[in-house]
């Protein structure tokens, strides 16, 4: 059974005095995500604060939040890329993340070569990669482009290939950042179908996005992140509407 949980996860991004806020000191009012030294140097940014949640087999979790609310950082922590400063993450099951669209893409090598390299990096044997190659090629619809270097691909083509590879090796936990919304309508429908199939096999899906349609079609639960902390949790449709109502009021 696939399982993901976070217990009181907190993380500060250290800045090592790379930034200084003009005329600022630690006692003056400032954005409370910034951790300042007495002379106004920015020591770090609180990226995540006290995040706790649990997702079990079949859960499809949406991450909602403004830019800079900590969605990608949380995905990186859940994927074991950045260890949290406090708290811990528990993962059971093979997890695959698609946080960076260009991950593992050797841009000067061909699409086929990239399937091999990415497959190896995911811990698959060469035999297993060959067995899945046809499926990846079909799903990505790249055809003869797979023999061309990745640097000749458009962003959408790279995304299709990356998604096809990431989902080819039966992940149990799939962690996706919002770039999936870069695909065209036909591909999104296909990706949605594949994700539904995967979640049906008792997987866990965690998807960050700004697209209501994408989230509602793929997820059931949702977490609303604000300034690195959980603002609310609940049903994906209701939570997105509440979030949307507030952000559109702010922008008016």
């Amino acid at each position: 059974m696939a399982y993901v949980s976070a217990e009181n996860v907190s993380l500060v991004f250290p800045l090592y005095s790379r930034a200084q806020v003009q005329g600022m000191s630690s006692d003056a009012p400032h954005d409370d995500r910034l951790i300042l030294a007495n002379d106004g140097r920015v020591l770090g940014v609180k990226a995540l604060e006290n995040i706790s949640f649990e997702a079990k087999s079949g859960d499809r979790l949406a991450l909602i939040g403004k830019n800079g609310s900590g969605k990608t950082t949380l995905l990186q922590v859940l994927s074991g890329i950045i260890p949290p400063d406090e708290g811990c993450v528990n993962i059971r099951g093979r997890s695959t993340n698609l946080i960076n669209i260009n991950l593992g893409m050797q841009v000067e090598a061909s699409g086929h070569r990239n399937i091999t390299l990415r497959g190896l990096a995911a811990g698959q044997s060469r035999d297993e990669i060959e067995r899945r190659r046809q499926d990846i090629a079909e799903f990505s619809e790249l055809g003869e482009f797979l023999d061309m270097p990745i640097e000749t691909y458009s962003a959408g083509m790279r995304m299709r290939l990356n998604f096809a590879i990431a989902t080819a090796f039966d992940p149990e936990i799939l962690i996706l950042d919002e770039w999936l919304s870069a695909g065209d309508a036909a591909f999104k429908a296909k990706a949605t179908a594949r994700m539904a199939e995967f979640v049906g096999k008792a997987g866990v899906l965690i998807l960050a996005s700004h697209s209501r349609k994408l989230l509602v079609e793929n997820c059931n639960k949702a977490i609303w992140l604000e300034e690195g902390a959980i603002r609310a949790t609940g049903d994906v449709g209701e939570l997105f509407d509440a979030y949307d109502a507030e952000t559109s009021r702010d922008s008016r």
Partner: peptide, 24 residues
Amino acid sequence: MDAHPNATVASEPTKVYSAQTKGG
């Protein structure tokens, strides 16, 4: 991108990521 060559393993050990897991 964790490596688990055997896709049929049913009960996998729980992985824990915390401040301790990458230190020491």
